[in-house]
Design a protein around this nucleic acid. Sequence first.
DNA 1: GTTGAGATTGCCT
DNA 2: GGCAATCTCAACG
Length: 208
Amino acid sequence: MTPYQTFFTNRPTQEIAQTLLGKVLRYDGPNGVVSGYIVETEAYLGQDDSAAHAFKGRRTAFTEPLYGPPATIYIYQLHRQYMFDIAVQDQDVPQGVLIRAIEPKEGLTIMQENRPVAGVNITNGPGKLMQALGVQSKEMNMQPLEQAKLTVDITDGQTPANILSSARIGVNADAKTGLHPYRYYVAHNPYVSQTKKRDMDFTSRGWS
DNA sequence: GTTGAGATTGCCT
DNA sequence: GGCAATCTCAACG
């Protein structure tokens, strides 16, 4: 267990999801480095969480990365979008944190080439941020986050002034655990998905 | 200029 | 067959 892996285990997944806010997601891509501050995450609690892929211990080739060591990359495709998940907790404990939105830090020009849209739309959703980074394959699925070209720098970043939580987005509200507030985000950051314009603070962007 | 609802779409939860 | 996202468009203020 490396110190890096320790960050992704030994405490509740909800806490890991919250402490990831403000950390830097970085991709060493073919056109250069692109990175951004994580502003929105969701915790998925594995076999007892009806919204999780590993609900009731479901284990297939698809969900296999969730069962890997802490900080295993879990990339999956939904509709036509790629999602970026980090498997947390020890080997065979299938919990994860979904990165839902980032605020661009480095390589904004590259992001705009990858995803030519205006404003916060460039990275304010889980599929959108993967487009902006330029990750459009499952090539890095199952790789250790610590050594991959797509990684999270847990020693770099900003501190959120306020962290808010809500029910997870897109989760079936009928499901028993669907309404738990396991979505965490930096309050007033414009890049958080589904934020109303009037709630955005373009000056502080929610950082302290 | 903003917001919410409906259509779209490829792959497997 | 269903869907955990995104895009488009029409109604609203």
